[in-house]
Design a protein around this nucleic acid. Structure first.
Lengths: 215, 215
DNA sequence: GTCTATAAGACGATAGAC
DNA sequence: GTCTATCGTCTTATAGAC
């Protein structure tokens, strides 16, 4: 056995890393095992020493992509939950994310690609979804019960923000008109920020504050 | 020429109709021309008498799917714009849409499938997007300037609602956990309804109304 | 216009040498 | 573990009969 024990592990990580990037930008069908292995610096034959099928690699890539994505970088650098959530929203809906200047989020770039895959793949996607949604939820501003009502629970707000981020980025990727992309991302960003604040914007809060002072 | 003049047109429509349904549920790569033609009651060879390539059919299918979708049915039946927008939101984020019990919206089911296609396909998608967004915008409740501020223009609200609907449905399709699907769709629906009302929910409006009466 | 037949290539997965 | 070679299958697109 001319291979060091850690060698296989290193090769495997290179494959997953290359696959995560290729899959997240092009989707499952548009990426061949040949392409993945070439990007990893190996040939096709070696693939099956690491994975039993292409779908198995896809499953693992989704998890890996979410780890590499910008969301996790934000989590490492910030402490305050509210500040973190706002920074996640900002970077998620940024031009840099749209232009693939950092590792793209598989949630937004693969959503429709996942729907028809096997349960293993969809389970992986489901896990990433809950991970993102939980990060968002941890940084929601508290809102007084009498204002928000139970209609807008914290969980509901975080789910809506997540859908807004994913939907906004997914659509923006597909549009051809540059102005429409910008308008869409901006609209999603400001609405997401408002939801993070509790569904009220600054003007409304001022208004409510004034009226409380009056009453 | 043993074929009636209208015969070709009828065949073409059957092909597009079959393609719209197959593409919208399975995506571009997972659907073969064979499958489309079989669903249309023809064989593969006849395809190229109608379209020059698979992508050309895809482009046309996206437009066709948006015409067949439930959104257009709502438009035909209702008059009041605000009522229409609320009904569009409701049916878009419904269990029936998720379960494909009516013609699915290509916006939500194909978003990531479109991003890497040629400009013609993406132009078609862009048109559908603006169509949906405009329908939403036409039915937004007006909000007093002093409350909403210019941060939340009508256009921004409609763009955010559209992204919320598309994102919510796209993610829900991919999830494996039934409870998560329901919670997500519900959260998106209620948030979208709030945005349609102008970013305020009923409790807030009552509160503001009270305070105005006091002042 | 629609059919059958086929060209020409890409793909996932396997076999066997080293 | 990684390589080259190849099998078997599926695909888009074309050619030619009717």
């Amino acid at each position: 056995m001319p291979y060091a024990p850690a060698h296989k592990q290193q090769s495997r990580e290179r494959i997953v890393r290359a696959a995560a990037e290729l899959f997240a930008t092009k989707g499952f069908d548009a990426v061949s095992i040949d392409q993945v292995m070439e990007a990893a610096g190996l040939t096709r034959g070696a693939f099956y020493a690491h994975f039993r099928s292409k779908q198995e690699l896809y499953r693992e890539s989704i998890i890996a992509a979410s780890r590499h994505s910008a969301v996790n970088k934000v989590l490492e650098n910030l402490r305050d939950p509210a500040q973190t959530t706002r920074q996640v929203i900002r970077s998620y809906l940024s031009d840099e994310h749209l232009a693939l200047q950092f590792f793209p989020c598989p949630m937004a770039f693969l959503s429709t690609d996942i729907a028809n895959r096997d349960k293993g793949v969809r389970d992986a996607y489901t896990r990433v979804f809950h991970g993102l949604s939980n990060v968002i939820e941890a940084g929601l501003e508290p809102v007084e019960e009498r204002l928000s009502g139970d209609v807008n629970s914290r969980q509901q707000r975080s789910l809506a923000i997540t859908a807004l981020m994913v939907g906004g980025m997914a659509i923006a990727r597909a549009l051809t008109d540059e102005d429409s992309k910008n308008a869409l991302l901006r609209a999603c960003m400001e609405t997401a920020m408002q939801l993070q604040e509790g569904g009220l914007n600054e003007q409304m809060l001022a208004q409510l504050s004034d009226s409380s002072a009056e009453g």
